[in-house]
């Protein structure tokens, strides 16, 4: 069991499981095998690091979660939506259950901080009248209450990532996916973003953070999934394989 009480991938399906990979294999036509037989589950409220060297398959796992890619075989299940039965039009529905943060922030450069966050609410058809209060609270939570009218280029890298996190949180996601969110940040901003993600996690949102910053991983006591050459080589929530008895 993990610190958060996570069942193993082959364990019984818990109602609190928000991500489940079952024997997932992903092959790309050009680059070949990206993931091989990957199984794990993430529960509601967990904080999970996804680590491994560049090209190991971390981003592929995240893309499979937000359905930018489909598995070649196996199943990816997010809450009740399964890759096996998901139709194209379900993808938008799935992404509204997720908050996604990227290394390069992906903010709209010609819109203010407030408009960038409102944009994520507007696409879901949320009424404009209710947006102001919600955006204000989120900006306070990420420490940018005074920057609502700033344009992204007027902010530091750390601040831009906070805006991206606020945008990811605006629809109350089940899981916050962060793909190398500190990759472009200095040490101080990295600590700030990590602290913010922990605070978000403390409110009950599961967080899955892909990173190759091993120092950050070592300093925390969070569950770690390590990927190497497309295989899950370590799940810190699982007991280490038993050593075979010496003959």
């Amino acid at each position: 069991m993990s610190p958060g009480g996570v069942p193993g991938p082959t364990g019984t399906h818990s109602a609190a499981t928000v991500i489940r990979f079952t024997r997932v294999r992903k092959e790309f036509a050009r680059t070949g095998l990206a993931l091989k037989d990957v199984s794990f589950a993430v529960n509601k409220g967990e904080f999970v690091f996804l680590t491994g060297p560049s090209g190991a398959g971390k981003s592929t796992i995240l893309k499979l979660i937000f359905a930018e890619e489909r598995p070649t075989s196996g199943e990816v299940k997010i809450a009740t939506l399964s890759s096996a039965t998901m139709r194209h039009r379900d993808i938008a529905k799935l992404r509204r259950k997720l908050g996604i943060v990227f290394q390069d922030f992906r903010l709209l450069e010609d819109r203010t901080v407030e408009q960038n966050i409102a944009f994520a609410l507007e696409v879901t058809g949320a009424p404009r009248a209710s947006m102001g209060g919600r955006i204000g609270r989120l900006l306070t939570q990420v420490g940018l209450a005074s920057k609502a009218q700033a344009l992204p280029r007027e902010l530091s890298g750390g601040e831009q990532q906070r805006v991206a996190i606020a945008r990811a949180l605006v629809n109350d996601p089940l899981v916050l996916l962060a793909d190398e969110p500190t990759g472009n940040l200095d040490e101080r901003a990295t600590r700030g973003i990590f602290q913010l993600l922990r605070e978000i996690n403390a409110t009950g949102t599961a967080v899955m953070m892909a990173t190759h910053d091993l120092d950050l991983v070592k300093r925390s006591d969070c569950r770690t999934l390590e990927i190497n050459h497309g295989q899950l080589v370590l799940d810190s929530a699982e007991p280490a394989p038993a050593t075979p008895p010496v003959a």
Partner: peptide, 14 residues
């Protein structure tokens, strides 16, 4: 294209 990609990531339908 960037805007479209962001729209899709935040859950906009086609």
């Amino acid at each position: 294209a960037r805007e479209i990609a962001i729209m899709r990531v935040v859950g906009a339908t086609d």
